[in-house]
Write a protein that binds this DNA or RNA. Structure first.
Length: 153
DNA sequence: GCCAACGTTGGC
DNA sequence: GCCAACGTTGGC
């Protein structure tokens, strides 16, 4: 099992949106960055645990935990002319982009702010900090456990 | 293949 | 709004 951090802008789709979905489940789509795509397509598996990260907002940070319920499949939006995520290079035979399905596991009572993550010595090597612009980021098991302990504590 | 210009992300 | 860090595009 793997651990991840997925980013979303809460104005567009935050953890409360996910909480309001039927079965608190949704398609995580619209990823249009090759490195993020490769993680999604090649590494993200059903059962993986995911931090829901709010970005580009007044208080960026981790808002809760999701679980992957369906591994990667072609993102339907790439074939949809009406969609912002339409990609003329994509064909059914050669999809360019992938999506996964996720389910809400836990919404934190208090969001864990980015500042707290940055301040913790055990998290100093997080890929989140090294490559700030990536929207699908691996998290190590040690980092995951540290973050869980911060939420409880 | 190189590189400049431009666009996007995201924290502050 | 600003800026850093990348990513993408397109000319050559």
């Amino acid at each position: 099992m793997n651990y991840w951090l997925f980013k979303s802008e809460p104005d567009v789709y935050g953890i409360d949106h996910l909480a309001a979905e039927p079965q608190q489940q949704c398609r995580w789509d619209g990823i249009r960055n090759y490195q993020a795509r490769n993680f999604l397509r090649d590494k993200v598996q059903a059962g993986d645990q995911v931090l829901f990260y709010h970005s580009s907002c007044p208080r960026p940070g981790v808002a809760g935990i999701m679980e992957v319920v369906k591994a990667a499949y072609p993102d339907p939006a790439q074939f949809d002319l009406e969609s912002d995520y339409f990609d003329p290079k994509a064909t059914q035979d050669k999809p360019q982009w992938y999506a996964v399905d996720v389910k809400l596991r836990k919404k934190f009572a208090r969001h864990l702010p980015l500042s707290a993550l940055k301040a913790h010595p055990d998290l100093k090597d997080m890929m989140l900090f090294r490559q700030g612009r990536l929207s699908v980021v691996p998290v190590t098991m040690a980092e995951w456990q540290t973050i869980e302990s911060m939420v409880k504590g």
